[in-house]
Design a protein around this nucleic acid. Structure first.
Lengths: 155, 155
DNA sequence: AGCTGAGGGTTTGATAATCCAACTCACTGA
DNA sequence: TCAGTGAGTTGGATTATCAAACCCTCAGCT
């Protein structure tokens, strides 16, 4: 994926993991499914595409190859710490789908250590308050990239 | 995008918003950029693709077209409540990119209503505890779709 | 009336990515 | 020896993306 005009961490992150299947691969790995064949079947990814995605995720430092057998050389894929940190993205995507697409029968349920089914909230780490639209303000740091758009003429 | 083999809200959500540019369109809308031309320039999406993405997001109930001028008929795009609820996905994607790709100079900063720069955390709504890998257990509801894979033979 | 420009798209043709099936290579276990 | 498994590669057909040009409606000059 190509970088997009507006400098933005969302775009940069999607440039790494936004291609088709990448996040599903991560889902499988975080469910404990680490081998090529099974990831291919569980995600539905064609094998050649899966090869490309795994390569990219390994190069990005999100997954790592770990040999689980010499002779024949066989590798499995595990999440690195950076990969684990994408967990919140998966959790929030899943929560949205559970609410808006699979309200009556969630295919996968996450149980929190407190015993309850997880209902995830995003909060501010320093004050603990809810971090939704009403409580956030954007500050665009890049000159010429306010919400009114890019600089038309910077001569 | 096609549905993937494993029944999963992550896959279902990505089937709606996982195509290239869709989440960037949502980012622009949530930054207050609502018009076709400007969304096209700020995301870098080709105009024909943008037309397709907007159509899909409107059909999915994530955006809505609002006329801001009769004669000539002109529309702008706004997030519906369902669209607003994708905010946490954008926030977590941005946080990952800020940490791993733009650590020294974040392009956009979110300020929480408490006055601090937002450092988002995902927590369990019922107990308030951290919702990371160590505190979560997966329960796969679909028969035959444990982490060991699909049913090989269901005759 | 005619000209220019803005806004919001559609069309066209070339380029690139995806998909799927078949194939390879290196073994293992019966 | 022979079938099977795991992890990819390869080739060809299909689909999506891209960039640029085009279209239509109207507003505001002149």
């Amino acid at each position: 994926m190509k970088a997009s005009p507006r400098p933005c961490s969302i775009a940069d992150t999607l440039a790494l993991v936004g291609e088709k299947y990448s996040l599903l691969v991560l889902r499988e790995v975080s469910l404990g499914v680490r081998r090529f064949d099974r990831i291919a079947r569980n995600t539905g990814a064609p094998r050649d595409i899966l090869t490309a995605r795994l390569k990219r995720l390994v190069e990005a430092g999100i997954l790592e190859k770990v040999a689980y057998s010499e002779r024949p050389k066989r590798y499995e894929y595990r999440a690195t710490p950076a990969g684990e940190e994408l967990g919140p993205v998966l959790v929030t995507l899943m929560a949205w789908g559970d609410r808006h697409l699979n309200a009556e029968a969630r295919p996968v349920v996450l149980e929190h250590s407190c015993g309850e089914v997880l209902d995830p909230r995003v909060i501010c780490a320093s004050c603990g308050g809810e971090a939704d639209r009403d409580h956030l303000k954007h500050h665009v740091r890049s000159p010429g990239w306010t919400t009114s758009g890019p600089v038309e003429d910077e001569r």
